[in-house]
Design a protein around this nucleic acid. Structure first.
Lengths: 228, 228
DNA sequence: CATTCATAGTGAACACTGTTCATTATACTG
DNA sequence: CAGTATAATGAACAGTGTTCACTATGAATG
């Protein structure tokens, strides 16, 4: 019994070793230049051995991406919980920014997860926890009446579209003459979020004591562009 | 002279024949299931012959996608010019919608151009003509003071991010429980554009006679979701 | 008409790819 | 030590993009 436990342990170790090696190749050579044979060579096993742990290249990547997403989830969830008493709109913005930053810092993971691989469409779609957090944040903004009475679901999806758009474009087209990265991200986020806030002037449901969201839109400047 | 002209004509015809066949396979089997050998078989030539007309699979796709985007450009430019007297904000929205529709109708082209292939980064970046039209439209909105005095460049980029976001997400994750497609697209576009319009209540530079943009935001509904 | 000659087209070959599977090596149990 | 379950292999399969020495074709020239 002890022996089989040691077996399993070794097997698990080998599996994570494969994952680590795979990630290295994946990051260094990119998705399209990854190959099972390269990976096998790196871990000094035969190609077939990998299939003792992962039933396909696809599944191997799936595991890799899952890992990455857990990191992203931690970052985003940390913002959600950590600043429970904080302004929900500010929390939301921070979360959105964290999302974009994560994508820019881990472009390969982001590319794989959201850009190149079409998700296997088996079983009813499992809504990703990261999106769940986003929706929760939006929900809080509405509950606390910092947002107009918008539909939480569609608003969350629209926000996701906005931040995914800027993230993937910045990753995919690094040589485009973008205006400053930071400013652009801020503009996208502020534009998307501030439009949802209760507007000064219109009373709607705004309760007394609830401060109105500032409209942090970027000022008009001459078409200044900095590097990517 | 006549003979070589006939030669060239035949060559050109063959080239377009290749492109047509390639497009069929490309559309039917998708980018990743396309193969030069399939194409060769379809046009009843040997695989090597294709390389007499295109120096790589990559270049072949480039031509294909170029064609597609020219169609989009025509549509968008048509909106820009055709309705010269029309409300520039409405023109802009129409253009944005046309962009999204194009992506959803030509997912393979869109994927190739904006999602999977990072553009070759030789020579100074050639800004895509479609983006040029978008920028022009934004410029008109600002000139005619239908928009606040925002920076045209960064605003155009932010708008691009928004529509690219919703387009690529809808393409990439068709099984996600999206709220209605049309409503979501409208929400994204309206949210992004209306936030830029001169706001009712704030006078800013709004000239007399210039109607204020309506705020076409989606109403609050119960979390109704329809299929993809 | 015969000969040259550029071009079009071929098909075999190269160096890869993901994946499978019969076979062998290994390590543990009775 | 024999038996057995599992780990690992290496060859094989069917495919990929691309190249290149070669041949077929058809027009232009002597």
């Amino acid at each position: 019994m002890n022996a089989i436990a040691r077996r399993q342990k070794h097997k698990a170790e080998l599996k994570t070793q494969i994952l680590e090696a795979a990630r290295q190749i994946f990051v260094r050579d990119g998705y399209e230049n990854f190959s099972m044979r390269k990976l096998a060579q790196r871990i000094e096993y035969s190609p077939g051995s990998i299939y003792l742990h992962f039933k396909s290249k696809e599944e191997l990547f799936e595991s890799l991406v899952e890992e990455s997403f857990e990191r992203l989830l931690k970052v985003v969830a940390g913002i959600q919980n950590g600043h429970a008493k904080q302004d929900p709109v500010e929390s939301l913005k921070k979360g959105l920014r964290a999302y974009v930053d994560f994508g820019l810092r881990n472009p390969n993971d982001y590319r794989f997860a959201f850009m190149l691989r079409r998700p296997v469409q088996k079983r009813p779609y499992r809504v990703h926890p990261v999106f769940g957090v986003l929706r929760h944040m939006v929900g809080r903004c509405v509950e606390e009446q910092r947002f107009r009475a918008v539909d939480v679901e569609s608003t969350s999806q629209a926000l996701w579209a906005a931040i995914h758009g800027i993230t993937s474009l910045l990753i995919q087209r690094p040589t485009f003459p973008w205006v400053g990265r930071k400013e652009l991200i801020d503009q996208v986020i502020n534009n998307a979020v501030d439009g949802l806030a209760v507007m000064p002037g219109s009373e709607e449901k705004a309760t007394a004591g609830v401060r109105h969201a500032q409209f942090n839109r970027v000022p008009a400047t001459s078409t200044a562009r900095s590097r990517s």
